[in-house]
Amino acid sequence: MFAAVPLLALPVLIYNLIALTLVGGFKAADASVRMTDTLFTIQMASRAGWAVSLGDLLLAASLVVLFVELLKSTTSRRIAIINHSLSMVLFILCLVEFLLFPAFATSTFFLVALMVLLDVLAGFIVTIVAARRDVDFGE
């Protein structure tokens, strides 16, 4: 049953926890400041400094999770339909948070929500293509 849970719920949950720790909670307008604050700097071979922020780390982890979700969507088991449905619910939740709460009106959360949408679309498209391949039309 764990396979039915969309893994992109993890980055959304992490962002929700970050937003809850802001002063003012979900109504805080300074979430973008927390997401863009530099956590550490990596010295590159070109002697330039690469400033890594919390938003960068969250997006990088979300991309890895999206890759795993896309691999999961290629299975044609019955549990995949439940996964696609839960991904749709997760996207609706992300959309509501993005539109209604100031702490979620950041580029970082928008990109995470876009990844959730891509997971929903890819899951349904892959399932439809696989189902069409399984059904034989004609003689």
Rank of each mutant, 00 (worst) to 15 (best):
F26K: 03
I14R: 04
S85Y: 07
T106Y: 02
L17S: 12
I18G: 02
M44R: 14
V126T: 15
F124V: 12
T127C: 10
D37V: 04
L57E: 03
L58C: 08
I92T: 12
I42T: 06
V5D: 00
S53E: 00
T75P: 01
F110A: 15
I82V: 14
R132I: 09
A103T: 01
V23Q: 15
L100V: 14
F101P: 01
A60C: 09
A60F: 11
D56G: 01
F67A: 13
F98E: 05
I82C: 11
A9D: 00
S53Q: 04
E69P: 02
I79Y: 11
A29D: 12
T108E: 09
A9E: 01
A4E: 09
L99D: 02
L7M: 14
R132K: 15
I82A: 15
V64N: 00
T38F: 04
G55V: 02
L58W: 04
V23C: 05
L13S: 12
V126R: 14
A122G: 09
L111H: 11
L99N: 13
L70H: 05
I14Y: 06
G138Q: 06
I79W: 13
V116E: 01
L17Y: 04
L39I: 11
V120Y: 06
A113E: 06
G24W: 00
A80I: 11
G49D: 12
I18M: 12
D56A: 10
L90S: 02
L7G: 09
